[in-house]
């Protein structure tokens, strides 16, 4: 037994292919060119072939154990039961209404839900593909879709929603507040989106508003660059805007080239009403 553990050198060059890339290779997910490279390596490098064979054997064993522990029929039944328990119409089913009446009531409920669904109604400024940024405000009833220029107070919790642009490679969401403070809320790769199938998605983190009052604007910017480059560019543009003293309730764009796609939305933070005696 070893009594000494060697720590990884995070600054050392990493030689590929990684264990994860090999799993993608086995799953048939690699692009044709990379796949061909690894297949050539398999044919010429015995050590590499042994590594791939070992991983394939490990995956086969894992799959066999999985099939025993989670049999497919049981899995399907359990997922269906789980979904049914959460369906917004589960209460209707429990009423056991006669066929036609039940169907009519369910259809009416579906229409109400559809009309109220805020899915694609982002409040941000429009781009060629529609508005690309919006937010939801947590309230007593759960949450509501935020409006452009909505007045909010310190302690209010909001969560951003964006609609990606499939032609772009990365997204940065940045905020500029009335005090000139720039905050990056998200910076991520959006590669692999399918044109025409972009959907509004909620970003995972929510934000609690601080006590600074005045207008605050949130800009989402999509660019063809990698995440780091785009982030640096957007941050610099946001800093320029912040230091210019522009009216954030009216300034809808960051000073960036037109090759970027950008959409923005603003809120107005007001002081909380004084509490009563």
């Amino acid at each position: 037994m070893s009594t000494r553990i060697t720590l990884p050198d995070l600054d050392a060059a990493e030689l590929g292919p990684s264990g994860f890339e090999l799993r993608r290779f086995l799953a048939g997910e690699l692009p044709a060119e990379r796949r061909a490279e690894l297949e050539r390596l398999l044919a010429t490098d015995a050590a590499f072939k042994a590594r791939v064979d070992a991983l394939a054997a490990e995956e086969r064993a894992e799959q066999a154990a999985f099939a025993l522990e989670v049999p497919l029929p049981r899995f399907l039944d359990e997922v269906e039961a789980r979904v049914a328990r959460r369906s917004p119409f589960a209460w209707l089913r429990s009423l056991r209404l006669p066929g036609t009446l039940g169907a009519l009531v369910a259809a009416a409920a579906a229409i109400v839900l559809f009309v109220r669904a805020p899915d694609d109604e982002l409040a941000g400024t429009r781009t060629k593909g529609g508005a690309r940024v919006g937010f939801f405000v947590k309230d007593e009833g759960g949450a509501h879709a935020g409006r452009a220029g909505e007045e909010l107070t310190a302690g209010d919790r909001i969560q951003f929603a964006v609609k990606d642009d499939a032609d772009m490679g990365a997204m940065v969401l940045v905020g500029v507040d009335g005090k000139g403070v720039v905050t990056v809320y998200a910076a991520e790769s959006v590669q692999g989106r399918v044109k025409g199938e972009e959907k509004t998605r909620l970003l995972p983190a929510s934000v609690v508003l601080d006590e600074a009052t005045g207008a605050e604007r949130f800009f989402v910017v999509y660019g063809a660059e990698d995440v780091d480059t785009l982030r640096a560019e957007v941050e610099a543009a946001a800093e320029r805007l912040a230091s210019s003293g522009s009216d954030l309730s009216r300034t809808e764009r960051l000073p960036l080239p037109d090759t970027h796609v950008q959409s923005s939305v603003h809120i107005v933070k007001i002081a909380p009403a004084p509490s009563g005696p």
């Binding site: 993608r24 997910e29 989670v70 997922v79 789980r82």
Partner: peptide
């Protein structure tokens, strides 16, 4: 947990189909 993950995938099918690497 696995069931929850699959339900999430079902609900985000468009995103799933757009992924270059569903495994990832």
């Amino acid at each position: 947990a696995m069931q929850e993950v699959f339900i999430k995938v079902q609900r985000n099918l468009a995103e799933f189909r757009g992924e270059a690497s569903p495994l990832t």
